[in-house]
Design a protein around this nucleic acid. Structure first.
Lengths: 237, 237
DNA sequence: ACCCGTCGGCACGCTAGCGTACACAACTCG
DNA sequence: CGAGTTGTGTACGCTAGCGTGCCGACGGGT
C-alpha cells in the first residue's frame, strides 16, 4: 500500500506544496483503491469526494441523449476529479469512469472545501488546473471535430500512456470506440494502420506502445499542445 | 449612452449583487462600445481587461494549426470575457471576436482581480459562471461531434438571438460557416432547409427568426440543456 | 479438452460533409 | 448608369465514417 505522504508527493497538483499545506491535507485524506470501470460520479450526482489520482486515471465522459458518449477529458496523476468543488459547487456535470485501476487520494467534499481558504498554494494550483482543463475542453472540441480517427487514437494512446506511466495498456477496440465516440470498426482500421507502421502492437485487449516518438508524429499536434499548455500554465509563478 | 448603473443591472452576472458590491464595481469600470469584428483577445495575449457585455456579444474561437477555426462558446449579457482573470491567471487561451456590436462594461485586469476578494457575492457568481462555461464546453464538444449542421445551425441561431435580444440578426453564410467549422455551402443548404420549413427567413446577411419554438424543435436538445444548466447553476443558493 | 464468450478483421451499401468551382443576383460606389 | 464587390444557389466527384452483420480466432473456465 502507498503511504499518504508518498501519494501527496506523487500527484503533480499536490507535490511541492508547502509542508504546512501538505500536512493539513494529509490530515483529512485517505488512500483508496480505484477499480477499472468504477464510476466516481454520474451526471447530476452530488459530489461527495474529491479525488487525486496517484497511479490510477479516470475519464470524464459527456452523455448525450442517453446514448451517445464521448470522452472529453482525462485525469491522472497530473490532475484531480471533483473540479466543481473548487468552484464552490457540488454537482457533477460529467460521467467519471475509472479507466486505469490504481489508487487515489480521496477527501470528503466538505473537508476539501474547508481546506481551500487556508491553503493558498493549493488553491492557486487548483485554479491553474481549472484553467488548463478549460483549455483542454476547448481544444478537444476542435480536435474531435477536425481530426481523423487515426490521429485522435494516437493522441489518446499517448495521453493514456502518460497517466498509466507504462507502455503497456489494457484497452479493447470496443472501449476505445466509446471513448472517441466512433464505431468499433473505425478503431480497428486506425489501430491496424498504427500497428502496420510499427508504432504499436496489440493482441486481444493488450496494447503495447513500441515507438513513442513515432506515435507523437502520427498524432495530431493537439497532444504536444496539451502538454505544452500544462507545463506553461503550471510553471508560471 | 448607457449609464454604468443601468449596465450593471443589465448583465446577469452583475444584476442583483449587493449594492455595496455594485458600488465598488461601478467605481472601477466604464461603458465601452464594441464594434462588430473587433478582437478582444488573441490566443496567448495578456488579458488587460475583463468585459461584461450589455447588449453586445462575443464569440470565443479555437484556432487549430493556423487555419481551422471553431467557435466553442459565446458570451453576451449572461456572461463575461476574461475568465482567466477569475482563475488568477492572465493569459487568454482563445480568440475572442465581437460578433454582435453594442456596449460592454470594461474593467482593467488588476482592478478586477483586486475587487474579487472583497466582493464575495460577485466572486461566487463568477465561479458559478465558470462552472457553466466548463459544462458548455464539454457539451459543445459532443454536440459538434454528433449533431448535424442543420441542428447545430438552429441551436446557434437561438443562442445568438438570446444574446442579441432581437429576432433580427446580421450574419452571412460565410460567417456562420466559420463559426460552426463547416463549408459555406453546407450552411447554405442547412439555412435553405430552415427557411423552407418557415422557421427563418434571410436575405443577403439579414436573418429573421420567424418561428422561435419551431427552431427550438429543429435544434438539437443541446440548446434547451444549455439554458437549463445556466438557470439551475445560477439559481442554486 | 471442450465450449462459449470475447475480441478483432472485414465487407456491404449508405450518408454527411468536404473541396472546389462557377454563375447569377443584389447591393455599393464612383 | 456601369463596374466591381459581396452574398447565395448549385453542381461535381470524393472521402471519412456510419450501421450492420458475419466470421474466425483466441483463451479462460468447467
Amino acid at each position: 500500500m502507498i503511504s499518504i505522504s508518498h501519494a501527496i508527493n506523487t500527484n503533480r497538483l499536490l507535490a511541492d506544496l508547502p509542508s504546512a499545506e501538505q500536512a493539513a491535507l494529509a490530515a483529512c485524506c485517505e488512500v483508496v483503491p480505484l477499480a477499472f470501470g468504477e464510476v466516481l460520479y454520474q451526471p447530476t450526482d452530488t459530489v461527495t469526494y474529491a479525488y487525486f489520482p496517484i497511479n490510477s486515471f479516470v475519464s470524464n465522459i459527456v452523455i448525450l441523449n442517453n446514448d451517445s458518449r464521448l470522452e472529453v477529458t482525462m485525469a491522472g496523476l497530473e490532475g484531480m476529479l471533483g473540479i466543481a468543488l473548487v468552484l464552490g459547487f457540488n454537482k457533477a456535470p460529467l460521467l467519471a469512469v475509472v479507466q486505469g485501476a490504481g489508487v487515489a487520494l480521496r477527501i470528503p467534499a466538505s473537508q476539501f472545501q474547508a481546506l481551500l481558504p487556508t491553503s493558498p498554494a493549493l488553491h492557486q494550483r487548483l485554479m491553474r488546473y481549472l484553467y488548463i482543463v478549460m483549455n483542454q475542453l476547448a481544444n478537444s472540441a476542435a480536435c474531435i471535430h477536425f481530426h481523423r480517427i487515426e490521429e485522435r487514437l494516437a493522441r489518446w494512446l499517448l495521453m493514456t500512456q502518460d497517466r498509466a506511466q507504462s507502455d503497456h495498456l489494457q484497452l479493447t477496440h470496443e472501449f476505445l470506440a466509446m471513448m472517441l465516440g466512433v464505431r468499433r470498426a473505425g478503431i480497428t482500421l486506425a489501430a491496424l494502420a498504427l500497428q502496420q507502421r510499427g508504432l504499436i502492437s496489440y493482441h486481444r485487449g493488450d496494447i503495447i506502445i513500441l515507438d513513442r516518438s513515432g506515435l507523437v508524429a502520427a498524432a495530431c499536434q493537439c497532444y504536444t499542445q496539451d502538454c505544452a499548455l500544462y507545463a506553461n500554465a503550471m510553471a508560471t509563478p
